[in-house]
Simulated assay, not measured.
Amino acid sequence: MFSRLRTAKGQANPFPLYAELRSGGGVVAAPWGGHLVTGFDLCDQVLRSREWLEPDTRWREEQGDGTRWTAPSSREMSRTLPALNPPDHTWVRRSAGMFDRASLEDLRGTVGRITGRLLDTLAARLDEGEADFNALVSEELPVATIGHWLGLPTADFARLRDLTHDQVFTQELLPSASQLAKSDAATAQLRAYFTELVRERRARPGDDPVSRWIAVWDTLESDQDKADEGVYFLALFVLLAALETTSTLLSTATLLLLEHPRQWDWLTVHPDLVPAAVEESLRYDPPTHVISRVCAQDRLLGGVEVRKDEMVHLMVAAAHRDPAKHADPELFNLHRKPAHLAFSGGIHYCLGAPLARLEAQTLLHQLVRRFPRLTLVRRPSWAPRVAFRRLLNLDVALS
């Protein structure tokens, strides 16, 4: 089944395979060990409970040398915020202090201006015929937004985006050796980049998040080198979290609306439904299809025994189409009551969710106003992944 998921056909529409998996029950054994969870309520239960942990540094080291969990990129990720467990997770998350209502309002105008410029470029390309929406807009908006927020040079955006695409392989469900090698190389370059950034901001602090994190970490850690490393891991986390999944959300939301012309037409007349369109896109085909957790103690999950330190893979994209949760789950419906796990849940609920929503809503508002006759030229192709969806193109034109 997972081999089929990596084929072009499986990537284009993995949901029949998820339905096949879900028919085996809410919790099924994974052939490589651990369990796959497909029921919505069970996935939600795991994400909200503190009895289920992130695969942290300790857990990864215990898997033994030569496993994907001890690859350099995996070790590095184990020290970023999403892979921490309490109490470390608690105080690192507090130190981040990002994307509250005030900071989002400060970013709103910036996101709007960046979106407008990108759509100007799209308009010029559409005047000549078809255009790749993914390359011109979806890949550019997240890196420009987070790059502006962090105060990074514009000239670095393309490199950081490409490194992020390679780095994410270490977070995939079953990465190959060649994929891990790419991730290791990208991680090393990202470490060098952000370590130098922290050094520069310590020498010349400004009014930016990295400078503020340095000030906060200096109160938490007396050793300056350790404080700077803590800031580095925050900066790395923010970049990785902000780019890959948000780009996928932007393209997927646009794709789904263009594939459902009646919903698109309705949205052009009723732009107040843009937030609902974003939430339904997150349910229907979320950027992240799999979230993994580790069992803290022997317990039952959906009537299945899970041992301490066993991993469960929450198949959230399958859970989003659980008929026990949503009526007509295969229907893309802007009028559906939002309920999804795209941003995880519990103490690990995505810190960047407000920013991702802001970018997606801003884009759709401008898109339906400026390009009501936008149409899909051809079905896109997808990267051969399971956990992290990524469109490789989204070719559009004006009708």
Score class of each variant (00 low, 15 high):
5 L>A: 04
5 L>S: 00
5 L>W: 03
6 R>D: 00
8 A>Y: 07
11 Q>M: 11
12 A>T: 06
14 P>K: 01
15 F>D: 05
18 Y>H: 06
23 S>W: 09
27 V>D: 02
27 V>F: 05
30 A>D: 13
35 H>K: 09
36 L>C: 03
36 L>M: 07
40 F>C: 03
44 D>S: 12
53 L>Q: 10
56 D>I: 06
57 T>E: 12
57 T>H: 13
59 W>C: 04
63 Q>R: 15
65 D>C: 12
71 A>V: 05
71 A>N: 11
72 P>T: 10
73 S>H: 09
84 L>V: 09
84 L>H: 09
90 T>M: 11
97 G>W: 06
99 F>W: 14
99 F>E: 11
100 D>G: 15
109 G>L: 15
109 G>V: 12
113 R>L: 14
117 R>I: 13
117 R>H: 13
125 R>Y: 06
129 G>I: 08
131 A>I: 01
131 A>T: 00
149 W>N: 01
150 L>Q: 09
151 G>V: 01
154 T>C: 08
154 T>V: 14
161 R>F: 07
164 T>Y: 00
165 H>N: 13
168 V>A: 00
169 F>I: 04
171 Q>C: 07
173 L>K: 04
173 L>I: 06
174 L>K: 11
175 P>I: 01
177 A>V: 10
177 A>Q: 08
178 S>Y: 08
184 D>T: 03
186 A>E: 00
190 L>H: 05
191 R>N: 14
193 Y>W: 05
196 E>C: 11
200 E>G: 10
202 R>I: 05
206 G>I: 07
209 P>R: 10
209 P>A: 11
210 V>H: 05
211 S>F: 06
212 R>D: 15
213 W>Y: 11
217 W>M: 12
219 T>S: 14
223 D>E: 11
226 K>E: 14
228 D>C: 07
230 G>E: 01
233 F>T: 12
239 L>E: 01
242 A>L: 03
247 S>P: 01
259 E>G: 14
262 R>Y: 10
265 D>Q: 15
265 D>F: 10
268 T>N: 08
269 V>Q: 15
271 P>G: 05
275 P>A: 07
276 A>N: 10
276 A>T: 03
277 A>F: 03
281 S>Q: 01
287 P>N: 04
287 P>F: 07
289 H>T: 02
292 S>Q: 13
303 G>E: 10
303 G>M: 11
304 V>P: 08
306 V>Q: 06
311 M>Y: 07
315 M>A: 09
315 M>Q: 10
322 D>S: 12
324 A>N: 13
326 H>P: 00
328 D>G: 14
328 D>Q: 15
337 K>G: 10
343 F>A: 12
345 G>D: 13
352 G>D: 11
352 G>R: 12
355 L>G: 12
360 A>Y: 10
368 V>N: 12
369 R>C: 13
373 R>Y: 08
374 L>N: 06
383 A>I: 04
388 F>Q: 11
390 R>N: 07
391 L>E: 09
392 L>T: 12
394 L>D: 01
396 V>E: 04
